[in-house]
Design a binder for these strands. Structure first.
Lengths: 327, 327
DNA sequence: CTGAAAGCGCTTACAG
DNA sequence: CTGAAAGCGCTTACAG
């Protein structure tokens, strides 16, 4: 059997509570005692049982990472691995583990989330998506459970970290304008997604700044995030008239669009948004600094947890830079 | 405060142990009692505390998923999201949660793994990679801790699930041969990776079957998984002479290679291996059925855990089909 | 600077 | 079919 805190206490000639205090490196414990106890731990190869600890202390040192439903585009995107990387890097620095919350549909996901919160599996949650009226986020708010959303959210009661997507859309469009384009198409996702909507706003602002009239027939809002949609949407847009530049809100669109352009041997300046360098060759992409989104979300969550423990429920917001990367 | 098992016991007029048995749906409990207890649970909005449960029962209903170090190519690959999806689907069906184990280097990862095993955070482990002499896998074996590797492994003491990569390499190559190619290039990863090595073996077998001489100057083993490597490797291969077909062991290679071919306006039949449809247009890809790899790994792990509990430590192996998908 | 005691919320033999 | 008791391995006031 694995050794327990009692074994360590016995071997080092102190009480179990003192062993706990050594584990917590309390300043009240003398160095001599600490040394003694640590030696005992080492010689017994002692490792604290986290379940006992969680039960007694009412904290788990685990955070839950909530994913969209598992058929989501999300799983085909470079965003997911990158943001997980960022979160887990920072989490590891603070001795936190990561538990995944996902499921096949909203019902299953909500059930799992309830079990996660009410079963006291985690100390806090990071939602990897921002959606209007998400029942999971609402449940967390309802339970006054510490949580951070990566992405925009309407509720004033929840913390979030996000890019300035409007500014990013503006910068992207300006980049294409500076390539000499005047007739710039935009392919985005459905309007309910904050990200797409904000990037589109930025696109329009940039056109205005450069006195380029906004032409609705150059703007496509696509319901499904797929390459096929990118392919066909661009094809349709080209029928509408001349296009000499392209801004896409997602790399999957870009891949489809580029395929069509290659087939037709058309050359356009193109920019998109991504977490890593896109797989097709285009002019540039807006790097949304996903690693940093992940890292910051964890740091924010720690602050939220602390403030909840002090009963003064704070809400934090943070905007992460983006940058244009030429390829 | 959240209600506990005692509250439920009191309200329904039974003992706490009976409440536990209802929770476990034991057949020894009468339906009348079950009904009564369940009503009490519902009215109190009772949810079991998983930490208390884990402590008392010595099982957590959590499995750990072990990732390579976080700078790995792995995180750029479609494999990761797909296999996570497969695991979590099956895990959800069995009331299991998933905890992630990763870190910046082998040391940190090993420390986290030790804490995970010795701290009793999880009931078993799934390793998402197969490598020669991995210290983490060895630690798990040493501790006689239930684990499954996705990928090949040399140790006879550990369970795994994998594709038949040699057969997959054979099938891929045969596909290209049937397109009429005779001078077929192969781009794979470094020889230490079981996957690459086995696919290469299959390639050679296929050539033999069709009496095509093996030409070493058409075979490249690339150390780094990047698009740039794909690009340059193909460029070099083409210098060596004529190529009329291409097999690549990873989609990132393919993307790079295709970029070069497009630039040079060269057309070749190409096949690669992937978890989802590759982003560049090629002839076909070998779908390695990653979702199924994930699902099976979880099922295997459950069996391993059961057999360890019965003190007869079983070791399971399972091969997952692949299939060629034309594009 | 340290210890004794109570408790966290479950489960599991044991007994009937 | 069900209950009383002991225990899982920690932590946390309280007390000195």
């Amino acid at each position: 059997m694995a050794s327990t805190i009692k074994d360590v206490a016995k071997l080092s000639g102190v009480s179990p509570s003192t062993v706990t205090r050594v584990l917590q490196d309390k300043s009240s414990i003398s160095e001599a005692t600490k040394k003694k106890v640590r030696e005992a731990m080492a010689s017994l190869n002692y490792h604290p049982n986290v379940n006992a600890r969680s039960l007694a202390s009412n904290k788990t040192n685990v955070i839950g990472v909530v994913l969209p439903k598992d058929s989501d585009i999300f799983y085909q995107n470079s965003f997911f691995p990158a943001v997980i990387r960022g979160i887990s890097q920072t989490a590891a620095d603070h001795q936190y583990s990561i538990q995944l919350c996902t499921g096949k549909d909203t019902n299953q996901r909500l059930a799992i989330l309830k079990d996660t919160i009410l079963g006291k599996r985690v100390d806090g949650l990071i939602f990897l998506y921002g959606e209007i009226e998400d029942p999971l986020v609402e449940f967390a708010i309802d339970q006054e459970f510490p949580a951070v959303v990566i992405g925009k959210t309407l509720s004033p009661l929840i913390s979030f970290v996000d890019n300035n997507n409007e500014k990013a859309g503006f910068d992207a469009t300006e980049y294409i304008i500076q390539k000499g384009a005047k007739s710039i198409a935009f392919i985005g996702g459905r309007d309910q997604l904050f990200v797409s909507r904000d990037r589109l706003k930025g696109y329009e602002k940039a056109l205005k700044k450069y006195d380029i009239p906004i032409n609705d027939s150059l703007i496509a809002q696509v319901s499904e995030f797929t390459r096929e949609q990118g392919y066909h949407t661009l094809k349709e847009l080209l029928k509408e008239g001349n296009i000499d530049g392209l801004v896409t809100a997602d790399s999957l669109f870009t891949e489809g669009a580029v395929r069509y352009l290659n087939e037709k041997q058309i050359h356009l300046p193109i920019i998109t948004f991504d977490s890593v360098q896109p797989s097709v060759r285009i002019d540039a992409y807006v790097d949304i600094h996903t690693l940093e989104l992940g890292r910051s979300s964890f740091k924010l969550l720690r602050n939220v947890i602390k403030s909840y423990n002090n009963k003064n429920m704070m809400c934090y917001r943070q905007i992460i830079d983006h940058s244009i990367k030429e390829m």
